[in-house]
């Protein structure tokens, strides 16, 4: 195994966030290169120097397991908090706008069919995302798949809520402009980004994409 093979193998085994992954790989590569250079300075051939350095460093699986254990706990707590909070906030805001803020947006308290299914689907997505996220954080076997689906569900819900707001604004006088609503969408996406990054850390990245 060459030094590059080892780094690729480690990248494939790591289940951490993208920033942490980059830092770990850079640190390990720096260590291994220093170790190889030291042997090369003693006139050891490169292939032997790399083999010896890797043998001293230990298996990539063991190293990755050490990092993955730490990351799992942090990811579970942080992603659950962010996703749960985002879901609860979205649902609360939507309910507030529908029921308590006057004037009521829809004629005779009946929302158009498109709005009804959009807001219903968005709420269902958010609810599913929170449940899936908690499931991903609690278990191991399906955690990567559940985290991925939760992430897609949150993104879909955010898109539906944004569309709903645009439709509502078109009907209610004094509503925010489309530009203002676009700003809200950007802020919403930014708020979801930490959860997305944390959850991406839980996904299994195909090794071919990392080499």
């Amino acid at each position: 195994m060459t030094l590059s093979d080892y780094i690729a193998a480690l990248a494939g085994e790591l289940r951490v966030g993208p920033f942490r992954r980059r830092r770990i790989l850079a640190e390990v590569e720096d260590h291994l290169r220093a170790s190889v250079d030291e042997r090369l300075a003693s006139d050891v051939p490169r292939d032997e120097a790399e083999e010896a350095a890797l043998a001293r460093f230990g298996p990539a699986e063991d190293l990755a397991a050490g990092f993955n254990r730490q990351w799992r706990v942090r990811t579970r707590l942080a992603a659950a908090a962010v996703l749960g909070g985002a879901g609860a906030l979205f649902i609360t805001v939507q309910r507030l706008m529908e029921n308590w803020v006057q004037p009521a947006p829809w004629p005779e308290d009946a929302a158009p069919a498109s709005v009804a299914w959009q807001s219903g689907t968005a709420e269902a997505c958010l609810f599913a995302a929170v449940v899936l996220a908690l499931g991903a954080l609690a278990g191991r076997r399906w955690s990567a798949a559940a985290a991925g689906v939760a992430l897609v569900a949150v993104a879909l819900a955010a898109a539906l809520v944004s569309h709903y707001e645009v439709e509502r604004a078109a009907l209610v006088a004094g509503s925010p402009t489309n530009w203002q609503l676009a700003g809200v969408c950007v802020l919403r996406a930014a708020a979801l980004l930490p959860a997305a990054l944390l959850l991406v850390g839980r996904l299994r990245v195909p090794r071919v994409l990392l080499t």
């Binding site: 640190e27 390990v28 460093f57 190293l63």
Partner: peptide, 12 residues
């Protein structure tokens, strides 16, 4: 120790 062992400890 295997040299890699130190990195998870440093990060922790």
């Amino acid at each position: 120790l295997p040299e890699g062992t130190v990195y998870p400890a440093l990060h922790r």
